[in-house]
Design a protein around this nucleic acid. Structure first.
Lengths: 215, 215
DNA sequence: CGGGCTTTGTGATCTTGTGCACGAGGGCGG
DNA sequence: CCGCCCTCGTGCACAAGATCACAAAGCCCG
């Protein structure tokens, strides 16, 4: 196996899940092969970009024909690390944490919610939507025992940095932050964020400028 | 007033809300001025980028001193269109839609949820967390009457494109899509997306590659 | 009132990402 | 079995974004 010097660009990584979803749709429709053109349309990008993105995975297409849907799905899943489950822990058992625990899409897509964690002793001990609720202090042990790789921060902004530190200390190196605040993580830890207010404010900007500046 | 030929880059627009949040924090702490260095640290970016970003808004800093927190906040709010409310409509009164309707952050940040809308007649008529539930068919009328500028798609993926079309038809030109699918919108409509599964899969990629390829 | 210190604002440069256009390669029909 | 046609893979040129480095500009202290 040639050690592929190719480092997949960040922008490409962010698009792979979109392609994968399109491929799943094609598979459901019993479609065996797909052209970059078609895939591009489904993913909402242009065809050249699809081909370039896929070429980072390897030469899995057939000229004159297209890509084999099933084979490409497999290769892509492998590259994305989706051939096995990644248990996640949700920190914060408030409204958001509970809603997330209740969301079936996680388990279905290979991210089972192994535990909920909260700082309040009152919430600890029971189950929420079938997920056990533990105390923050037990995080390191939980992470080790349950093989948790990903932490989801669903606390108020004020607690987010503290939680991030605790996750890092528990050896968790992938963090998804829902708290509306910037947090710092150690070198080597991946951080993604979901920020509702930010998205709305960006929309507000363009809305305002549409109104104000014509066009 | 020089008609500013400067078009604010997309990347900058996406950071403005982060700066604004940092400024709000400083204001709460009764801090009157802030340097680009300090602001950069709070926003998790580098100082040169802060200065360049802020320079698109105008020359609001004072050399040797920094930026006046209150004045900069005001200018930034104005630019972002946050000096007035933007009523939003949430489409889809399922789990996600209800959870979003219940989220107080919207109103607080100037995005009051004016209505929930659903395709199912059963859900129509009542109130959820104080928000009236209407039928999809009434969308155009609602949008006009309530001055709704932003639509939030909180339906299953299968309905998302249809909803986007309906929002467009109702004259709504800013859309935030929570459904895990790619949707097309007319030219001139802003679209942002929040995609949990995608974020997790990206984390999965980096997690997998950390494990596999050392580093 | 002048010199030095601080911090902004921005030109220049480098990196990353996008899109085009075309050669290469493989299937398929005759 | 040959040649045509289709679609991939990729080199190249361009656009967008990040970072650096420094001159310009204002405040403060003596």
């Amino acid at each position: 196996m040639t050690d592929r010097a190719r480092r997949i660009p960040e922008a490409t990584v962010a698009r792979l899940p979109v392609y994968l979803r399109s491929l799943a749709e094609l598979h459901d429709d019993k479609i065996a092969t797909v052209s970059s053109e078609r895939l591009a349309e489904m993913a909402g990008v242009n065809a050249a970009k699809v081909r370039k993105d896929l070429s980072y995975l390897g030469s899995y297409g057939t000229r004159g024909v297209g890509y084999d849907v099933e084979y490409l799905s497999f290769q892509m899943s492998r590259e994305l690390g989706l051939t096995h489950d990644w248990p996640v822990v949700i920190v914060g058992a408030g409204n958001l944490g509970q809603a997330l625990a209740n969301y079936g899409g996680f388990r279905q897509r290979g991210f089972p919610v192994a535990a909920l964690v909260d700082a309040s002793r009152e919430k600890v001990g029971g189950y929420i939507h079938g997920v056990p609720v533990h105390h923050m202090d037990d995080l390191p042990e939980l992470a080790a025992d349950l093989g948790i790789a990903i932490g989801i921060i669903a606390t108020p902004a004020s607690a987010a940095q503290e939680v991030a530190d605790a996750l890092a200390a528990a050896g968790i190196r992938s963090i998804l932050n829902f708290a509306p605040t910037v947090i710092a993580v150690p070198e080597g830890t991946s951080l993604r964020k979901v920020d509702l207010a930010l998205e709305l404010q960006v929309l507000s900007f363009y809305q305002e400028h549409r109104d104000t500046e014509g066009v």
